[in-house]
Design a protein around this nucleic acid. Structure first.
Length: 592
RNA sequence: GCGCCCAUAGCUCAGCUGGAUAGAGCAACGGUUUUCUAAACCGUAGGUCUUAGGUUCGAAUCCUAAUGGGCGUACCA
């Protein structure tokens, strides 16, 4: 039972006793008191005035009096412009800190018996991961962690797009121009090597188009008739026919890519319980088509193609199976959705996919609902905005991308330079240093990407390096290191406070109030699938602690009970920072 | 054409289901270190919350429209 709940209940009683009226719990607005006023919890009195028939000030005073009388923790109140500010006793806040916040499991909810699947990353195997994928991976990983903290059993999966014409493009270019180059022979990471041939394909393709246009073909025809594209298409047909040579090439190049991805994932700190491969799933979904035809959800046109009419739902007619009986994107997604459900019987399934596919998922989910799939209501598209460069959209085939591996290396290198300038960890071993640079560099990157609401598009300027000061990951990591340093000096091991009757300073109280909000933030982040809430909360907390740290001494506190209490407060702050950052996939150092 | 999303300080972003005088960080300027880590802290300056209507005791927040930007509307994935 939180203090807010207690207050809300008593307000209901107050309204019924004082004004002989019933008030719904929903119309009671309780919020944090703004800093400039006395108190910690504020009740908005306007909704009560229609029962009291008095001014907001009078009403607030009456209810304030009632609350003060009936709730032990409410020690004082004031009413300003219709806002009833309540002061809660220091004993309450100290008890909160010592009995709740310092608890190991604080902010971790007990299991709710629900299973949720989070699909994220979903790379193509024809090129390395870029900044856009990084946002996807971090979001997916973080949302999975957040749901887990909220009591869900979480299954992280990756649907790898390992077939199709784009894969054949890199394969063909390698076959034509590769001269047998391998990751070993070139020293290139496998995914980068394959990506290189994807770019080469595109260059060659453009050359051939230009050539044909010069020979008098229209641009449109040239695009269809360029030899390389025809060869790539032929290769795709052979792949589908399981031509041994093509399959061998495909397997070899894919294995290079997977080795490369594995490194990137490890470096990023993300993982998956299961991989799905499109080469296994691309034929799925045809029985769903049959099912839909039987149920009359789909209809067949004369040419044999199968459609669904969604015009009544404000959408269009949508093709679900080609006339020649082959699958389209949505066909296999229908099949894969069924497969994923059959595999795990999850209550919810989240797709972390960019907002360019909003329409696709709207259609997909709607179709599954129309087919009467009971699990369709648990499907959710976590749509996030694209990462753009100042020059516009990133394009792999034109090579205008911010490569994930390079970016991470850059960040770590910058962390190293910055740390060396400060010269605080000179006596660290080489290994410890590397660990630290890694933590800081990636912390900066991850925080940068996660602090923004997923929905919003993100602008990334490669020329303007990501900050290490202010509203950043390293700022928070630094705060944590600072606290750990103090705790180490005091040889702090576990909760030591004994005195629950201290008088708190303004900043101490503010810190505890802030810490006690953590579980609310965690559940809000889950509800909205938004790590940004946590990022901004932890930043707020770190900022507040730094202010406290600067103004009030911990180790040199006026007496030992205050010192012990402040050590507990600092420890609770460090622990909460650590937990919050862990949900973002960011590690925090104990020294930096 | 139609549909979806976005618009807050010079820049990057917060602002919970409507609630008090719209907040941070960066950049700029000024200050703080014989005292627990200055990747910090304090201060100055910076806003018609894109615009116009509407709902309300109360709107950055909800509704309508306009403007600007992004995306989609493929027998690509």
């Amino acid at each position: 039972m939180t203090i807010e709940n207690t207050i809300a209940e008593h307000i209901q009683n107050a309204v019924s006793e004082l004004y002989q009226s019933g008030i719904g719990i929903d119309s009671i607005v309780i919020q944090e008191t703004r800093k400039e006023f006395e108190g910690q919890i504020t009740v908005v009195t306007f909704p009560f005035t229609k029962f009291s028939k008095k001014t907001p000030e009078q009403t607030g005073a009456e209810i304030g009096e009632y609350l003060k009388l009936h709730i032990r923790e409410v020690t004082a109140f004031n009413v300003i412009k219709g806002f009833l500010n309540l002061s809660i006793s220091d004993t309450y806040w100290i008890d909160q800190l010592l009995n709740t916040i310092l608890d190991q499991g604080f902010g971790r909810f007990p299991g709710n018996g629900k299973k949720v699947m989070v699909e994220y990353s979903s790379p193509n195997t024809n090129k390395p991961l870029h900044l856009g994928h990084v946002r996807n991976n971090l979001l997916g990983y973080s949302v999975a962690e957040i749901l887990s903290a909220n009591g869900y059993e979480v299954i992280k999966v990756n649907l790898v797009n390992d077939r199709g014409i784009h894969i054949c493009k890199s394969m063909l270019a390698w076959a034509l121009f590769g001269n047998g180059e391998t990751p070993e022979s070139s020293g290139l990471k496998g995914d980068h090597l394959v990506g290189k041939y994807y770019v080469i394909f595109d260059q060659e393709y453009k050359k051939q188009i230009a050539d044909l246009v010069q020979k008098g073909q229209t641009e449109e025809n040239a695009k269809k008739n360029a030899p390389v594209i025809m060869q790539a298409q032929e290769m795709l047909l052979k792949w589908e026919a399981a031509d041994p040579e093509v399959i061998a090439l495909w397997s070899m190049m894919n294995s290079w890519v997977y080795a490369g991805f594995e490194q990137t994932y490890t470096q990023l700190g993300v993982d998956f319980a299961k991989y799905y491969y499109e080469s296994d799933t691309y034929l799925l979904g045809k029985d769903i088509i049959e099912e839909g035809l039987a149920k009359g959800v789909f209809f067949k046109k004369e040419d044999g193609s199968v459609w669904i009419d969604l015009t009544e739902d404000g959408l269009d007619q949508k093709l679900v199976l080609r006339a020649d009986g082959t699958s389209v994107y949505i066909t296999q997604d229908l099949g894969t959705a069924q497969l994923k459900y059959d595999d795990f019987k999850v209550d919810q399934s989240i797709y972390v996919v960019g907002n360019e596919q909003d329409y696709h998922f709207k259609v997909l989910f709607l179709i599954l609902q129309k087919l009467g799939k009971s699990w369709a209501k648990g499907l959710y598209h976590l749509s996030y905005g694209m990462v753009d460069l100042p020059s516009g959209k990133m394009k792999s085939r034109e090579g205008t991308v911010v490569d994930a591996d390079e970016l991470m290396d850059d960040m770590i290198q910058t962390a190293k330079e910055r740390t060396e300038e400060l010269g605080k960890v000179d006596e660290f071993s080489e290994h410890e240093k590397d660990e630290l640079y890694n933590m800081i560099g990636l912390g900066a990157l991850k925080f940068f990407l996660l602090k923004v609401e997923p929905k919003k598009r993100l602008l990334f300027d490669p020329n303007e390096s990501i900050d290490f000061q202010g509203h950043t990951g390293p700022f928070i990591q630094y705060t944590h290191a600072r606290i750990r340093s103090v705790l180490a000096k005091a040889d702090y091991k576990a909760k030591i406070s004994l005195d629950h009757s201290l008088e708190l300073t303004v900043l101490e109280r503010e810190l505890i109030v802030n810490l006690s909000k953590y579980p609310v933030v965690i559940s809000a982040a889950a509800k909205e699938y938004s790590p940004a809430h946590i990022a901004n909360y932890v930043f707020e907390l770190a900022k507040l602690f730094n202010k406290f740290y600067h103004e009030e001494s911990i180790l040199k506190a006026e007496d030992s009970s205050v010192k012990n209490f402040r050590l507990d407060l600092a420890a609770a702050t460090a622990a909460t920072i650590n937990k919050g950052m862990a949900l973002l996939g960011i590690r925090v150092p104990s020294r930096m």
